[in-house]
Computed example of a mutant assay.
Amino acid sequence: MNDRLKALADAGVSIWLDDLSRERLETGNLADLVKNSNVVGVTTNPAIFQAALAEGERYDAQVRELAAAGADVDKATQSITTDDVREACKVMRPVFDATDGVDGRVSIEVSPGFAHDTDETVKEAAELWKIVGEPNVLIKIPGTPEGWPAITETIGAGISVNVTLIFGLEQYRNVMEAYVSGLEKALDNGHDLADIHSVASFFVSRVDSEIDKRLEATTEGPGTDPDLRGKAGVANARLAFQMYEEFFSGARWEKLEAEGARKQRPLWASTGVKNPDYDDTMYVVDLVVEDTVNTMPEKTLDAVADHGEVRGDRIRPFYDDAAAHMAALAEAGIDYDEVIEVLIKEGVDKFVVAWDELQTTLSASLEAARA
């Protein structure tokens, strides 16, 4: 067991892998990461599945079977992705059992084309939950305005949810409200709240990418200060955790907690550092605090294992610093609300493009198999 990753886990951070492929499953790579690298969960998204299908030959036999059965591209996409997630759930099941369902989770996302369609999101979330058929699956729902009521309905049906594409603080508040409203509905519907879990995937690196781009375009005034760059992602996430602590307290939450409800843990997502000038572990080591998840691409996981320094709680002591940094960005002319709006739109669009590419690749493979 790697000492640095163990220190991270001992600090209360659940290490999840932001990747999945049939190769990882069939070679035992995922099981090895669980055994040797403290990996206790898996996240997927359309881009991850697109890359897995484009690069791997391990899907060929299933594609031929689906082609022979007359499956269309939507059916084939669903079959392949849910099969991978189901198998990953089986690999992670011992972790799930050992942690009373807190970890050992595997996420699968509703079709990104439904990001602005509440009813279709609710329908597909229920369908994916049923098809995967494993208690440790999480259904990913985008944190768009149309996603908020979908979160409430899905949680209310007793289905565990990973809310994705969260960038902004007000957006995050609405996500937490949607979750708690869903728990209240689930209680009314007779579900055991202890069986319902959720994480809120708060994206980090993309915030820096967008804000840095705007700062670099500034030619005069406080925005030209290089010390403003590369700090917004962490500051924003720290303020999100402060909001989390405030939200999951008080009479409303205590009533649900008495019925067995679990807090919706923050999950730090988009933790691969995109700027090579920055510390490649900063979105992990600077966001250490208990009761959080950090989902990492393998490159980031390896970097943390090699040289990541865990230095205790890096969130609570820095609330004032985080607020001051965001205020300094505002003074420098950075429009926070506009940044968040851009990032949400870009996030949805990127997943739609990846999903379309996945289906294009799979459609060609089906046609070839039928030829």
Rank of each mutant, 00 (worst) to 15 (best):
N45T: 06
A47F: 02
A47T: 08
I48Q: 01
I48V: 10
F49T: 04
F49N: 03
A52D: 07
A52L: 00
A52K: 04
A52T: 09
A54D: 05
G56I: 05
G56W: 00
G56F: 02
G56R: 08
D60Y: 01
A61M: 09
A61E: 13
Q62G: 06
Q62T: 14
Q62Y: 09
E65F: 03
A67K: 03
V73C: 13
V73R: 14
V73D: 12
K75W: 08
K75S: 05
T77S: 15
Q78A: 05
S79G: 08
T81S: 13
T81C: 14
T81H: 10
D84H: 07
D84R: 08
E87R: 15
A88W: 09
A88F: 07
C89T: 11
C89D: 10
C89R: 06
V91Y: 10
M92F: 12
M92H: 02
M92G: 12
V95R: 06
V95D: 07
F96Y: 15
F96E: 09
F96L: 02
A98Q: 12
D100R: 14
D103N: 03
D103V: 02
D103H: 03
G104P: 14
S107Y: 12
I108M: 06
I108T: 08
V110G: 04
S111E: 14
P112R: 14
P112I: 12
G113E: 14
G113S: 13
F114P: 02
D117N: 11
D117G: 10
D117S: 02
D117W: 04
T118I: 06
D119L: 00
E120P: 08
E120L: 07
E120A: 10
T121S: 00
V122Q: 07
V122E: 08
E124Q: 15
A125F: 04
A126D: 11
E127C: 06
E127A: 08
E127V: 03
W129D: 13
V132I: 11
G133S: 01
E134W: 01
P135Q: 11
V137Q: 11
L138Y: 08
I141P: 03
P142H: 12
T144N: 13
I151N: 05
I151R: 04
T152V: 06
E153R: 15
I155H: 06
I155T: 06
I155V: 15
G156V: 05
G156M: 01
G158Q: 10
G158W: 12
S160W: 04
N162C: 13
V163C: 11
L165Y: 13
G168Q: 09
E170V: 05
